[in-house]
Design a binder for these strands. Structure first.
Lengths: 231, 231
DNA sequence: GCAAAAGTGTTTACAGTACACCCATGG
DNA sequence: CCATGGGTGTACTGTAAACACTTTTGC
């Protein structure tokens, strides 16, 4: 049986799986570690939680140190608490994932910037990551795959204005399955949660597609009436 | 910015929502607190995590101190980490829920026993619980409601041998909705995951019902073939 | 005029839903 | 013989799935 002081010799951290979509692949940000332990291994962005800082705030801070964006989707996945998961002491970590809109300048010019890189989810899952970060990454990816089927969170990964083909490609990239174009469009448009912007794509060497925008208010209203999003 | 030692002045705990089913109501175990803070309030069973103890093990220990059962379903839900959630210091808690088969002697003759009581989930959700335990209870209940629709975990709450009516009443109690008897039976039996035990109920003042048992091996095999459980 | 992706409907199959009566047992 | 819950089938409806061609634009 441990003395009460013993319980306070542990620390907690947050790790954040930051997802983005570059019109082709689902991607995550990894950090090349510059120090021991696991020097030179890729790792998830994370940090210890400050003593007077809420868990969610710590996760948002980790994100903000890497990425210059506001109002980003952030969801806790679960805690990882194996005794030996950190070689230097007892550290329980709480995993989060974020969904961001990739833009050219999205990776901050911070001290992290030079060691942070986007990796496709497939590549990242095959890397020998630091700590138990592979397990964490898998858990977060599976959570995203489930979430995206029943909640309208996919839009967080796309520009505000997007085409239906882009939306379909996003779902195909996340779920790893091809979808039927006509059925996909029928289903999404029937939900009545997209606004037709009456604008067209520009600069493409083919017939330009119509641009749409997700309407959160309409979604909320429908939800109150018993509607459930379902891909 | 805090000194590194500051990070180690926090503790973590686990709290466990233990669900049972008494053929009528979905129930949870609550503990009447005997000490400050929140003396005399109802609370979830929980404890600090030992320095050399895995999170999952700590949750199982909390359960084992209350209930005399082996091989119980246990699932982590999420961490709760608001700075002020514990009045005496920084304590992050990780919430779990367990599903157990209620038997007459299930509540241990431990020091806890005299302060531990089963409450119906409806009653428990209306109580003024200690700490943020109401939020935790809500999160665990919602998780159970979602889980039970797509995973065959309901059987953990029933005796090994059960009738289809008992199974239906369980789902109605968890989800809070009435179901159609014929459709429910059709759906469950079509899944082919139950074994007909060729035994009948005894001691009932009406036509005795057939007894069934869940077959985990058959479920596993079907799952590998793409079958998904769905209520 | 050619390459490239946008856009569009119909048919078919399956799963969900609604619904009412007879049966077996204990008391 | 009566009260209680057990057990069963069918018709209807709506959603998911399969599937191919025409249109618009840039070059």
């Amino acid at each position: 049986m441990a003395e009460i002081e013993e319980f306070f010799k542990s620390a907690f951290s947050v790790d954040n799986v930051i997802f983005g979509f570059d019109q082709v692949d689902l991607k995550v940000i990894l950090i090349r570690r510059g120090a021991s332990p696991f020097k030179d291994k890729w790792a998830l962005p994370g940090d210890l939680v400050y003593p007077n800082e809420d868990l969610d705030v710590a996760a948002a801070r980790v994100l903000a140190e890497l990425v210059d964006l506001r109002g980003v989707y952030l969801e806790q996945v679960q805690a990882f608490g194996a005794v030996d998961r950190h070689p230097l002491g007892r550290v329980i970590t709480v995993a989060y994932y974020s969904l961001i809109k990739i833009q050219d300048d999205v990776l901050h010019a911070s001290s992290w910037a030079e060691v942070a890189r986007w990796h496709s989810i497939q590549d990242a899952l095959e890397l020998d990551l630091a700590f138990d970060h592979r397990t964490i990454l898998e858990a977060c990816f599976e959570r995203l795959q489930r979430r995206v089927k029943t909640q309208p969170v996919g839009f967080e990964l796309l520009p505000v204005a997007f085409t239906l083909t882009e939306l379909q490609q996003l779902y195909e990239a996340i779920l790893g399955v091809p979808m039927d174009k006509r059925n996909f469009r029928k289903k999404i448009l029937a939900m009545n949660i997209l606004v037709d912007l009456n604008r067209l794509q520009e600069g493409v060497a083919h017939r330009p597609a119509k641009l749409y925008q997700f309407d959160p208010d309409r979604y909320e209203a429908l939800t109150k009436d018993g509607f459930t999003f379902q891909i």
